[in-house]
Design a protein around this nucleic acid. Structure first.
Lengths: 116, 116
DNA sequence: TTGACTCGTAAGTGTTTTCTTACGCATGAT
DNA sequence: ATCATGCGTAAGAAAACACTTACGAGTCAA
């Protein structure tokens, strides 16, 4: 079975980060490799532990995390490079808010001049 | 100290861009203001026109597009600045693919720690 | 007015997501 | 061996999602 190496496609990453819990899980993994117990801790009041496991599975199938067994723990590691396609998709929109900021800058500049 | 609960406020935008059709609609709107007929044209073989309307509604409710009536057409305009939230969220991951050597260093460091 | 055109909404349906509880399988400790 | 720990999976329910067809409200043209 090579499910983990199977190409999840472009849609998998976008769908994976659509859920706030999964984004929070990724955010935690920025600190480094973490066991499920640590990852699930912030959600202990919100949802059951199997629910966190299922979110981790979605992330795994999207290729956003790697799993490795260490003793009786399972350590999850971030694979941030999978987020590149999101970054790439966003790139074409960047000029819109850059232009907007530039336009706002010019506007404020003009306001400032007329105020003198 | 940061709150460890997730932020549900931005969820609309992330959920909106999770669907490939909606991303394609946004991509199309980069060209400028467009009527629904033009926006729906690429999907005539794929899905019905009301389906496109419903996708546009999701985008509208996420604040990603504006709608304005012109004659009997409805023109949709991109509001790309709403995508900044996504960009901001991505920022914390950028270093992982921008600085490969640094990431490798951190990885080795973590490996060393787990080996204790 | 009549009729074509543009488009959204309503209602219904099948599918997917997201959660729950129950359970099982390893691993490590006693 | 026995038991606790860590975590995934199974099964099922509720809700959300993504469509469909039917219809109606505006707009423009003849």
């Amino acid at each position: 079975m090579q499910e983990d190496t199977f190409d999840a496609g472009n849609d998998g990453v976008f769908a994976a980060i659509a859920h706030p819990v999964r984004r929070a899980l990724l955010d935690h993994l920025v600190a480094g490799e973490l066991p499920v117990s640590t990852l699930a801790a912030p959600f202990v009041e919100t949802m059951s532990r199997p629910a966190v496991s299922q979110h981790l599975r979605v992330l795994r199938e999207a290729g956003l995390v790697d799993e490795r067994q260490a003793g009786r723990e399972r350590l999850y590691r971030l694979r941030a490079e999978r987020l590149r396609e999101v970054r790439e998709w966003l790139r074409k929109y960047e000029r819109f808010w850059q232009e907007r900021l530039a336009a706002l800058g010019e506007y404020l500049e003009q306001e400032d001049e007329t105020r003198r």
